[in-house]
Write a protein that binds this DNA or RNA. Structure first.
Length: 491
RNA sequence: CGGGGUGUAGCGCAGUCCGGUUAGCGCACCUGGUUUGGGACCAGGGGGUCGAAGGUUCGAAUCCUUUUACCCCGACCA
């Protein structure tokens, strides 16, 4: 947990940007609102990609790829969907440039206007359901369980690296089912995949729940989500899984013949997570020394730094280290030996700390003599001297321990920052002075939710699964309520 | 789109109010040397149309006009 984060809230975004920059993860690009993901940042995304992709395949999904461009007419077939995304779409109107007849450079060729504008996908439901229509005739064609790894564009007014960029990378799963029950099971299954990924790989505890109608995905009947709490006390939606009912099937006329030879509309789900998860990773674990990565997502899990004065020492260390590297690799631990002579060891210590490498091993002449090494862990910044002989075993244990420790710390933080509020004053006081999740009664109406959002800048993050029922009064209207819901200010 | 702020070397900044030597500092970079267990030190060196355009002036980074880009805070949103 970042030290003194409470007093730093107003410049938390500065702190965040600083981590992104110092750890060399990403930078703003020449195109407003778009982000350049640098090699180290992308390496983290690749780790996420690989882990998620494996989980998708385990649950029976296949990858496919659909077009970047969506004809405008497709996009407007589902009314609430278009309403949700219309305000942030990039639109292609022309397909050709020409030399500027009046000067230098190029201009859009007015003769090359498209008959129908194309939308750069903000999400792919429409183009995919237009495609599924051709894939589905019979119940035997179902289910379709596809995922695509892609970029999407949402023309946001204000952007932040990883958390909200005009273009971002994500995966979007789109499934088609013969029955409502099956689709609902799928929606829940994939939310569980996300929750498992967040907790086991990212070491981020998440709350699984239902979105309120206001926060639901445009076009969904039900949106399930995982919500995480960041170190500055704001919530972050880390992933969503939508039960789309038959909305898109009806909009795109996707029907199948069931066993009784009757036509039925297909049931749908969609689910996605994005590069935003990297933002979650940063804001959950990092400290004032820089990024902190959970071992399972660290591109480099162990860095080995030699400390030497002479070339002989350097060689001797190199030979010793080779043994360790082989052992670690045999355990599938990614290890980097940094014997770059142009950097001093102290510089390297800082460099890898800022980049969040979980375990650092330093070996110098002193260690060679005693058959030992200095091992430092990033999460606690503790250093200890260990025997060289079973160092690989110790490191393996330490990596597991770091993975678990990060989760425990984040869970403790979330628990300490989840509070109940029974009055409006209490509600505001917690939001203003402490942050975090606030469990409070709500009368269940979208109108009240909207008013609370306006008055307190807080939204209902979710209605947790298995939420205990409890009689109470809405903190805003005083009307009766059957359960508390989780509010927070959010990213 | 509203409210603030900033554009000066690769990066971070000072200088601008009150115009005046050859535009400066830290980091980074290059050369040589000494160093190397937590971002080394010394010496020397390279790198700038001061965001852009126009104006005022003997003289503009500095004053005036216009313009543009980016950042932060809102509205929008994963």
């Amino acid at each position: 947990m970042a030290k003194n984060f409470a007093t730093r809230e107003e410049n938390y975004s500065q702190w965040y940007n600083d981590i992104v920059k110092r750890a060399d993860l990403a930078e703003n690009s020449a195109v407003r609102g778009c982000m350049v993901i640098k090699p180290y940042g992308y390496a983290i995304w690749e780790k996420m990609h690989d882990a998620l992709d494996a989980m998708f395949k385990e649950t029976g999904h296949s990858n496919a790829y659909f077009p970047l461009f969506i004809p405008k007419s497709f996009f407007s077939k589902e009314a609430s969907h278009v309403e949700g995304f219309a305000k942030e779409c990039a639109v292609i109107t022309h397909y050709r440039l020409k030399n500027d007849p009046d000067g230098q450079g190029v201009v859009v060729d007015p003769d090359a206007k498209l008959e129908e504008e194309l939308i750069v996908r903000p999400t792919s439901e429409t183009i995919i359901w237009n495609t599924y229509k051709n894939w589905i005739q019979s119940y035997r064609d179902l289910p379709i369980l596809c995922n695509q790894w892609a970029n999407v564009v949402r023309w946001e007014m204000r952007t932040r690296l990883f958390l909200r960029t005009a273009e971002f990378l994500w995966q979007e799963g789109h499934t088609a089912h013969a029955t409502k029950e099956e689709a609902m099971e799928e929606t829940e299954r994939m939310l569980n995949v996300y929750a498992t990924f967040a907790e086991k790989y990212m070491s981020i505890p998440v709350i699984k729940g239902f979105k309120s109608p206001n926060e639901r995905f445009a076009g969904a009947i039900e949106t399930l989500c995982i919500e995480a709490l960041m170190q500055d006390g704001k919530a972050l939606q880390a992933g969503t899984s939508h039960f789309l009912g038959q909305n898109f099937a009806k909009a795109f006329d996707v029907q199948f013949l069931n066993k009784e030879n009757q036509l039925e509309y297909v049931w749908a789900t969609s689910w996605g997570v994005s590069t935003r998860l990297i933002g979650a990773l940063i804001m959950t674990h990092s400290d004032d020394n820089g990024l902190v990565l959970p071992p399972k997502l660290a591109p480099i899990q162990v860095v080995i730094i030699p400390i030497y004065k002479s070339e002989e020492q350097r060689q001797a260390i190199g030979e010793k280290v080779d043994i360790l590297i082989k052992k670690l690799k045999a355990k599938n631990i990614s290890v980097k030996y940094d014997d770059d002579d142009s950097k001093r060891s102290g510089w390297k210590f800082n460099e890898y700390e800022v980049k969040g490498v979980p375990v650092r091993v330093a070996i110098g002449p002193r260690d060679l003599e005693n058959n030992q090494a200095e091992v430092a862990r990033r999460d606690t910044l503790e250093k200890q001297t260990l025997s060289f002989d079973n160092l690989d075993v110790e490191i393996e244990k330490m990596l597991d321990d770091i993975q678990q420790n990060l989760f425990n710390k984040a869970l403790k933080f979330r628990e300490e920052n989840t509070r109940k509020a029974d009055t409006w004053e209490e509600f505001l006081d917690i939001l203003d002075n402490q942050g975090g999740f606030v469990a409070a009664h709500w009368d269940g109406t979208p109108e009240t939710e909207e008013k609370i959002k306006e008055a307190a800048k807080a939204t209902i993050r979710c209605i947790p699964f298995n939420n205990p029922l409890e009689e109470g009064k809405c903190i805003f209207t005083g009307k009766p309520s059957k359960q508390r819901v989780l509010f927070a200010r959010a990213y």
